[in-house]
Nucleic acid binder design. Structure first.
Length: 553
RNA sequence: GGUCCGUUGGUGAAGUGGUUAACACACCAGAUUCUCAAUCUGGCAUACACGGGUUCAAGCCCCGUACGGACUACCA
């Protein structure tokens, strides 16, 4: 068989060679230790926690080594293209402050020398490499249609054989030039397949940067390199692109581990140097006692939009992911609570080998701790951004009076306390938790610990004696005085000693007042809340509770 | 079915042959407080999947079993 002739027959219009492209995309001028990594999502419009998990690792390794981190769009599958997906990807990464040095839609002054970064725009490049493989006898055209392949697979399954296009099953492998010419003349569509020479019973040791030594078998599948439309499959595009873009570490999910033999063979027949590989473990979730992979359909928290919509702080999410990514991060972060993530020395070999279980409790805790460290002004601005993005109507409610809001946040965060409060988790929850300060969104859930008549009397008595100018002490002494009126223990210790002597205790009395003014059983310091609200609102709230109770007693 | 990867307490996770298996989260109890949060103290009683083997000694090495996961597409 004259492979030269075959190559010309199949790709008459491709005149560049792999060597030409290697000259166009020369080796990067970087330090010896610099690593080049990429994130290569397909534009399906769904970007999830796993993507961010990988991206964060890529970004850290690249930038920590003075290397390059770039974005490549793997849009080779026509069927899965979703409009606007690239914009979503970019805006999501931007929200989480993952910065690319180059790649799709990245605007920089003096870079992007390795594009285009959309694979569909690179078809000529792939075809040049494919043509070269055909010339060398490493690839061939295949005219089998999907029906035929399906039937073949069915038969293989029935005979309990490995499915696929290989060995004796690879019928088009043996077509001669005349037969191929005939097929082309008949206008039959074709794909280009690898002519594999591997033997799957032969095993090799392979070093994965995360998993360590692993076993790989040789590939014997004549995998498709170029689909019928001339666009490459993932495998072929990966080999060609990651070489021409000079990726040094291919960091990807462990679902790719199974196809590693294919990639190894591709690099070999293409005669390209092998990059390092790092396969990350999957994010798992506990579901009814079973540890399972997070799934798009069942787990809304897998979608990054979920966190954006609730208003989790992007930096807190990153801190959490870092704890999953590198086991020693958490300890480091505890010792250096004010350091930036970028100061941490990230190592690939400290990444977990088994599936990390996604733990919302822990994320919440990290988020609380992070928010508690911020200035109230920062939280205020953050809330403003959140409202602007999600529900601009609320701007008039919460931001009508910014000093008022700031006072609320100061109290809510406990900025005057020795140790700050850790109530705030994410923006939406903060807004809900302070909604009682704002009449427009105030929805009291009245539930008094005393009966309605007694509660009513307590609130009335409190209202009669309430004076906005009282300091905290005076205010509390008044509560105690009221307590005695109703045979309620003014000291907790008294009540503890002789509970049967009293109707209740001061804590319960305070609760009645608290519920009357805020609609909640648990709030920060009540006296301060009243100070912030101001006399008019306090009185109005007390009246509201009084009329509620009057209707019911 | 085949191939590969994995399995340490409620959860994440350290530990690669040698005293009481670190740390963090969650949970529980006590202290404190007008409630909550925060804080402090203590607890979580038999956590190294199971069965063999190697060794003076194994969570760490070897073999097998079970369980979980991934891949097995003209999807990535």
């Amino acid at each position: 068989m004259n492979y030269e002739q075959l190559a010309e027959l199949l790709f008459p219009n491709i005149d560049k060679t792999p060597d030409d492209y290697k000259k166009i995309y020369p080796k990067r001028q970087l330090d010896d230790k610099a690593e080049v990594l990429r994130i290569a999502p397909s534009p399906t419009g769904f970007i999830h926690l796993g993507n961010l998990y990988g991206a964060l690792a890529d970004e850290r390794i690249a930038h920590q080594s003075n290397g390059v981190f770039f974005l490549r769009i793997e849009d080779t599958d026509n069927k899965r293209l979703v409009k606007g997906a690239v914009e979503t990807i970019i805006s999501t990464f931007k929200y989480f402050q993952i910065d690319f040095d180059e790649g799709a839609e990245v605007v920089i002054n003096n870079g992007n020398h390795y594009g285009p970064y959309y694979q569909r725009q690179r078809t000529n490049i792939y075809q040049a490499f494919a043509k070269d493989l055909i010339k060398k006898g490493h690839a061939y055209p295949c005219f089998c249609d999907e029906e035929a392949l399906k039937a073949q697979r069915k038969q293989q399954k029935a005979e309990k054989l490995t499915t696929g296009y290989y060995g004796e099953w690879a019928v088009c492998r043996h077509l001669d030039l005349e037969q191929i010419k005939q097929q082309l003349a008949d206008d039959h569509p074709f794909v280009i397949r690898l002519r594999s020479t591997g033997n799957p019973t032969i095993k090799h040791r392979f070093y994965d940067e995360i998993k360590g030594d692993i076993t790989v078998i040789e590939n014997d599948q004549d995998v498709i390199l170029l689909k019928a439309d001339g666009v490459p499959t993932y495998h072929f595009a990966h080999a060609v692109d990651d070489h021409l873009m000079h990726t040094t570490i291919v960091l990807r999910g462990e679902e790719w581990l199974g196809t590693l033999p294919i990639h190894l063979e591709l690099f070999k027949v293409l005669d390209l140097p092998l990059p390092k590989y790092a396969h990350t473990s999957q994010l798992m979730k506990m579901d009814n006692g079973i540890k399972r992979k997070l799934s798009k359909r069942k787990d809304p928290e897998l979608s990054l939009d979920y966190y954006r919509q609730l208003g989790y702080h992007p930096y807190a999410v990153k801190i959490y992911l870092m704890t999953l990514l590198n086991w020693n991060f958490e300890e480091w972060y505890l010792k250096n609570p004010n350091a930036d993530i970028t100061e941490f020395k990230f190592s690939v070999n400290k990444m977990g080998q088994s599936g990390a279980l996604f733990d919302l409790d822990k994320l919440n805790n990290i988020s609380k701790t992070y928010l508690a460290k911020q200035q109230p002004e920062t939280i205020k601005d953050y809330l403003k951004d959140f409202i602007n993005d999600n529900d601009p109507k609320l701007l008039d409610v919460y931001f009508k009076d910014e000093t008022y809001l700031l006072k609320i946040l100061n109290l809510g965060m406990g900025t005057n306390l020795k140790k700050r409060r850790k109530d705030y988790i994410f923006a939406k929850q903060i807004l809900d938790s302070i909604s009682y300060y704002f009449d427009e969104v105030y929805q009291p859930q009245y539930e008094f610990c005393f009966n309605n008549a007694l509660s009513l009397d307590i609130i009335k008595s409190f209202k009669d004696t309430y004076n906005e100018d009282d300091d905290n002490n005076t205010w509390f002494k008044k509560l105690k005085t009221i307590a005695l009126l109703f045979n309620i223990a003014a000291e907790m210790s008294d009540h503890k000693a002789n509970p049967e002597k009293y109707v209740g205790n001061i804590s319960q009395l305070a609760e009645v007042i608290r519920v009357a003014t805020t609609g909640l059983k648990n709030t920060p310091d009540l006296w301060t809340i009243m100070q912030i609200m101001g006399k008019d609102k306090v009185i109005q709230r007390l009246d509201q509770a009084i009329s509620y109770l009057k209707d019911r007693s």
